[in-house]
Amino acid sequence: MMRMFRSEWMKIRRSVVWLLVAVSPLIAALFGLFAAKKGGDFPWLEALSLMSVLHAMLFLPLLTGVYAAMICRYEHTGGGWKAMLAMPVSRTQVYVVKFVIVMLMLAATQLLLLIVLLLVGFARGFSDPIPWRELASSFLGGWIACLPLAALQLFVSVAFQSFAAPLAVNVVLTLPNMLVVNSAKVGPYYPWAQPMLAMIPRDHYGFGAFNLPLETLFGVVLGSFCVFFVAGWAYFARKAV
């Protein structure tokens, strides 16, 4: 298993992955620097809401798709699937490793955004103590909420040879977020809206679908994750390469 991680790492090390990981935090940083207010009762959480709106509503779900498509690209071009599956590894291992890599890239993105948020806070001279608990639950929650998305995107990325096709699926499913997050009826049950619902601080900025119990949120997240992951894994186990 460890060796497979290393081999995957070799493949992506020299690619544009670093740029991808940095893109959303950088844009969020611009937003934070120009728009975050110094005053207010909860400067940290306000900055968090501001910076994570774009990030969690669109970037995070869309980037999940880009990451998944990217780690399958090497296998689709140049017959890499054949070479990989001819090695003494099980298909399940291959699939799990790929999935974990996607989640690791998402974790890196989240971590970078957190660092950027802290830097923005210091730059703007927030005097309040850093609300670590809220920040941790926001970033970790957003990351966990990406589980089903990553599972589905890995599924379609393995299935389609083209790079754009899985992303098209991704976009079609993510764009409704713009409407869905305002709806208290649909939002809580829509997997693609979950990163946003999980990341926006509750209580202070709750509106529309944002006020919902954690149980629903994680029920939907874990439920859809299981469905997507098992479907993708079953497909990959049977895929002819």
Partner: peptide
């Protein structure tokens, strides 16, 4: 490699 063009497209949309 279509990663970069598509990322630029996504950033552009946002």
């Amino acid at each position: 490699n279509q990663t970069l063009p598509l990322t630029i497209g996504i950033v552009g949309m946002i």
